[in-house]
């Protein structure tokens, strides 16, 4: 997980949507609303907009940004009860990067930064333990619950640990097949055009 990875996550998270409420009638914006017809957007219309658009509209005081459902009370309670078992990937792939942006856009929602930080801290401890024991496989289906940022961190952590163990076992210097090749069962060869390939 490098600073570059984090920037990529931040960029991708800009596309995540947040619900916005329009504060006044907006002309020529009717196309933003899939259900609406016509050119006008009524005042009070609620539309989900990507963060990059919402932040600009918010700056011009055209919209109010509401807290998205993935940071709603249900998620918060679940995170409070047990941060480890909540599947953040299902809530939002870029839970933390997106959360940081949402927290910026909804300054009234004072609880959100703390929820995010507490959740990350608890989940970090869990990842730390799993990484450092360097156990094989995926104990407790952990990787399926991790958001994008976490799973990148987790993978680098595990890679470092495995590399160390490999070195200790004296296998570091040898050339081995890469994981992808070892795990692939049987790859279908690319048949030249015009020939039918036999299924593996």
């Amino acid at each position: 997980m490098s600073a570059f990875d984090q920037m990529v996550d931040d960029l991708l998270a800009e596309e995540e949507k947040v619900p916005c409420e329009f504060l006044h009638e907006s002309h020529h914006l009717g196309w933003l609303d899939d259900d609406g017809d016509g050119d006008m957007l009524a005042s009070g219309a609620k539309i989900e907009l990507p963060v990059y658009l919402a932040s600009e509209l918010l700056r011009g005081n055209h919209v109010d940004v509401l807290t998205p459902q993935c940071f709603g009370p249900q998620t918060r309670n679940a995170l409070k009860a047990d941060p480890d078992v909540v599947n953040l990937r299902d809530k939002n792939e870029f839970f933390f990067a997106h959360g940081l942006r949402v927290a910026e856009l909804t300054p009234d929602d004072e609880g959100l930064p703390k929820v995010l930080a507490d959740a990350f801290e608890a989940r970090y401890r869990r990842m730390l333990d799993t990484c450092l024991t360097g156990s094989d496989g995926d104990p407790g289906g952990l990787t399926h619950r991790l958001s994008s940022t976490e799973s990148k961190l987790f993978r680098t952590g595990l890679a470092g640990q495995r590399d160390y163990q490999r070195w200790k076992a004296g296998q570091a210097g040898r050339i081995t097949a890469c994981d992808m090749i070892r795990h692939a069962r049987k790859r279908q060869r690319c048949a030249p055009l015009g020939q039918s390939s036999t299924p593996a």
Partner: peptide, 12 residues
């Protein structure tokens, strides 16, 4: 052994 994980996590 833990550098990349720790720096990344603590940064986050």
């Amino acid at each position: 052994r833990i550098r990349t994980f720790a720096t990344g996590s603590l940064g986050m």
